[in-house]
Amino acid sequence: MSKRFDINRTKDKLFRYFGVACTIFGLVMLAIFLISVLIEGLPRIDWGFFTSLPSRKPENAGILIPLLGTTWIMVLTSLIAIPFGVASGIYLEEYGKKNRLATIIEINITNLAGVPSIIYGLLALEVFVRLFGLGKSLLAGSLTLALLILPIIIVATREAIRAVPKTIREASYALGATKWQTTWHQVLPASSGGIVTGVILAISRAIGETAPLIVIGAMLYTTTIPTSPMDDFAILPIQIFNWLSRPQHGFIINATAAIIVLLAITFILNGIAIYLRNRWQKKVKW
């Protein structure tokens, strides 16, 4: 009896050490990566790095155009994906009948979230770039990424909405509210924290995406500042990719600096998402 107990305790201990070791390994790798990137790239970052056009000389090259491109993409993608994604989520959760069709749609949305992003690029190349004649524009790129993150936003919206207790909806209906009034006045405010969190995480995923935009023809090199959704564009990840493939060491350093900028944007977005989630969890306790 006590022997068996000892064995179990040993197993328990071993597993704990194993788990701690795995965690430390992951953290150390991440730290090494971050530190080496920071050491190499941070000194390169100055005001000029943000405001300079591309150049043949690494010291003169900057990220102005890809940074603007990424910003444009972020804004346009949000404008397209958020209304559609949130509206679909609301429809599926609050209005749609729970029948076979709903189950099929649900499975498909989940599957869509797992489709490799390059497939979205191929679809977009055919539909947006060629069929709709949008060309290699910011709009085509944003539509592509919007499509890519739509399933994520839909799923996040549905989950946030589902967490709103049924009793709140019933209270609203019982006072004579319509379905839409109940959704607007009760369900959405109560789930907005979760929805916003999901949306931000989806967008931070979108700005890191490279493959689908390469497929539809984002620029490796351009000197025109994007001013309208129909313009050509470059984006940060592709700029990084471009610089990394150059032989001169100066460009490698530029790439590292651009990585820091991209990481910073992603960290900030994730930080906002975490902040909102915490605030939401604290505020709403049923």
Binding site: I168, E170, A171, A174, L175, Q186, V284
Partner: peptide
Amino acid sequence: KDVGMVFQKPNPFP
């Protein structure tokens, strides 16, 4: 509006 309802568990809006 004409037939009001009070539920088992108090369910005020947040």
